[in-house]
Design a protein around this nucleic acid. Structure first.
Lengths: 222, 222
DNA sequence: AAATAATTGTTAATAAAATAACATTGTTAT
DNA sequence: ATAACAATGTTATTTTATTAACAATTATTT
């Protein structure tokens, strides 16, 4: 019996934080640090040291007392947990501003996770390469996804095309979808779906700014 | 005693969902619907009807039995809660692909929340207008923010400039920050900060795709 | 007119996440 | 050598968020 199933009940939030810890660790490593304390990681991520230690406990990693955690070891362990051994291929569907932003942002950052194809319907874009990522015609989506074994797609098409695009991707055998359009999409339960809406995020910021402003007014008018 | 303080202890998740409910409601309204059931909202957002009803209970809104919720009323109520009466002005700092994507994405969507300025250091961009949003030199950030009363900034600069940009924005009197760079930033407690990292999100999707794949293997090898 | 079904609103229960508490253990200082 | 300190690792507690349960009510069907 292998040990790989050990991590299948990690809290969702822990998964997200592990990714962030790794990013912080890679940065520290590149600056020549070899060890790091929980409170250092915590302060980078604006969380508490206890949270960090608890997460590391959950993945079974132990540091050294008064010396902290070995950065290289921890990076490797996090990689074993969240990365896929063979690597996962990703496609961007919709090579507009957001699609291109994601490619630039991502290129070469994670070798186990690489964007290898972009799709668009605009003939001016098809055939070009952006940051090493070729742009194909959206009509060839299924073909390329199957041929290349692409497992994840990021949807950055105009909102009105979101659900049709999603359907095509599911039909092409995609395993995970990340939807950046403001239009919620439906997928079968065997496809992992994550949706992110920038308007909601901005409205949330606006709400808390409003609340802070109201609080201040209350204080000054007492 | 006014009633506006009533909503200052709504759960964070409820705030985010209210924004999403409103979006769904606006869509339904534009299609000529006048009322909607909790399960309809729920299915658009991939959540449960109970969750919807509970959120609406928290904001004190009542529907009609067997008829559902009045869409217009609910849109107005959500607006009263999350929007700021006078409106809030937003700036985009960094007019690269992501900055431009946000502007296109957002333009004219919410009249109480509008992006009215962009900043960049690239002379080719300064002086241009994108989707009605003028791009100013980053050196004028403080001046414009103060003059226009901009309260929220979205940071879409290259990661290496993130923290300096944040410091300048805080010094300029910004109240809320939305950081889209992969570099966590520090702000004083009186500034509301929200950070979003696309790599983390994608890695999370990759993790769950990996888990699903492993599960399937387990099943087929029993 | 009675029974059934559909829906809301609310309380109660459960689950998930975060935080606190604290025992343990090396390290440094006295 | 001892005391004080600074860190980890883990259990317990609290808080936050979600889900379940169900009473109440109205519309629809028989």
């Amino acid at each position: 019996m292998e040990d790989r199933g050990t991590f299948d009940n990690l809290p969702h939030k822990t998964i997200a934080r592990l990714s962030q810890y790794r990013r912080a660790l890679l940065l520290c490593l590149s600056r020549g640090k070899s060890h790091i304390f929980s409170h250092e990681i915590a302060s980078i991520q604006h969380i508490t040291p206890v949270q960090v230690r608890r997460d590391l406990m959950l993945i079974g990693y132990s540091g050294t007392l008064r010396k902290g955690y070995n950065i290289k070891e921890l990076i490797n362990l996090i990689g074993n947990i969240i990365d896929s051994e063979e690597g996962i291929k990703v496609a961007i569907v919709g090579m507009g501003n957001l699609g291109r932003a994601l490619i630039n942002y991502f290129s070469g950052k994670r070798h186990k996770l690489s964007i290898i194809a972009g799709f668009d319907t605009n003939p001016d874009k098809i055939g070009n390469t952006m940051n090493g990522v070729p742009c194909y015609s959206a009509t060839r989506m299924r073909e390329i996804i199957e041929k290349e074994g692409i497992q994840i797609a990021i949807i950055t098409v105009p909102a009105e095309n979101a659900s049709q695009t999603a359907n095509e991707l599911v039909a092409a055998g995609i395993k995970g979808l990340l939807n950046y359009t403001p239009k919620p999409i439906d997928v079968p339960e065997y496809v992992y779906l994550e949706e992110y809406d920038m308007i909601t995020t901005l409205e949330k910021v606006a709400f808390y700014v409003k609340m802070k402003t109201l609080e201040e007014e209350d204080i000054t008018t007492i």
